[in-house]
Design a protein around this nucleic acid. Sequence first.
RNA 1: CGGGGCGUGGCGCAGCUCGGUAGCGCGCCUGCUUUGGGAGCAGGAGGUCCCGGGUUCGAAUCCCGGCGCCCCGACCA
Length: 486
Amino acid sequence: MADDKGLTPRADDFSAWYNEVVQRAELADHSPVRGSMVIRPWGYGIWERMQRALDDRFKETGHENAYFPLLIPMSFIEREKEHVEGFKPELAVVTHAGGKELEEPLVVRPTSETIIYSMYAKWVQSYRDLPLKLNQWANVMRWELRTRLFLRTSEFLWQEGHPAHATEGEAEEETRLMLDVYRTFMEEWIAMPVVTGLKSESEKFAGALRTYTCEAMMQDGKALQAGTSHNLGQNFSRQFGLTFQSEAGAEEFAWNTSWGVSTRLVGGMVMTHGDDTGIVVPPRLAPVQVVVVPIYRKEAERTAVVEKAHELAGRLRERDVRVRVDDRDHLNPGAKFWEWERKGVPFRIEIGPRDLAKEQAVLVKRVQGEGEERKAFLPENQIVAELAEHLEAFQRQLLERARARREARSHRGGETLDELREILEGPGGFVYTGWSGDPAVEERIKEETKATLRCIPDPAFRSPQAPTRCIGGGEARMEVVWARAY
RNA sequence: CGGGGCGUGGCGCAGCUCGGUAGCGCGCCUGCUUUGGGAGCAGGAGGUCCCGGGUUCGAAUCCCGGCGCCCCGACCA
């Protein structure tokens, strides 16, 4: 932020650009506690839109919301072996309360499997009580060593779905279904294309049988794990005595799943669509989809133009467009243009004295597509009639643009470690290779290239030709995606 | 925890080498003129110079000891 006005260009320093743009779009700010953030209204408004869209889908797929408490007995976290190993280093622990040392320390939840499934154990007796499909919207805390606004903060907001099922097959189906809900949401709402697939053993959730993931590619070519869906098998039900009597009368352990997405998605949105002017918010997520900026010189003009601006806004609102009139008098129009572009509002309508008589206005799009004019002088009526379509088209355009960017940086057909390194140190992005499944190879690649195995992609994302050769030697038993990641 | 950088009005910084009690840009307030891409002029408000100790007649500046934040690596949604 050398000169108060311009942002550091993405190409100069992507990381600096991200930090600046998040603050200057007023999405969030650092709180006084290291590693935690304040989500400001503009950022929270985007998160609220995400929440609503996801919550609707959760309900449609048969889930209900509930709320489980923030504090979890330490012994609960310790119950599942892999789980505790995964989370121990990042737990925040309450040791004192009410002026006394507690007999048993309480953990600020890093995730809620343990408390939720322990409660399920009380509630579930029969197969008739299953499936029990609950979700909660909550904050969680993981004491991270290195933090960044939205991408990794010690406290973050998320949703965690924690169903219990009667059969293994049902649990697997649920795991896949919710992964698909996430993928669709990310594409259709955030306009952020993702590759879905299975995590390797070393990358899976602590305590899960299998973890499925949505991996997005940011503009710097790095991967962002945007959402995960876990098949927990019976690991937690065994530890918490979550049993039920089956139709045949036998006592069985329930099959659990868990799935979550977090405020990290806001960071994903920023790094997917932002440009050197600021962030770009996809229309479906934008708290304000259109800002109307009145332009005037004399007082008489001001009255007429502002009145017209509000009238236009009213007509747009009737068509369910989220619109705001920026009639602040102490800023000139140019300052308002910059401000709303920085904040990523999809469209702007400029209306001034010259437009009034002609019953027209200027419609300006946040991102200029190839071969299109950014500004259009259009009759008022046409703007009102067509704006919803423009918003939808813009939404689609963002997804297409992001998808094209990802494809341009998806490298297929590489086989050797040197090729992998060359790509990562050059253009960056996703590298598809064959893999034998040997964890030692995965570990070595991670050490030597800093890239991790992002996923074993689902069929829809595999290369047209299955790789025959294999990175790190051995027989190519599957195709995998490598990338440096956030 | 290792490496680097930085703590000075709300924000970004200068001043520190060579001690003399604080300045610039932006922002903010008031007024007038402006307003189709980041307004101009005039006036004004606002600072425990991160904290503690020391040296000195005198410390933002020198010395000692803390604390905090940011960035880069090892761990992770």
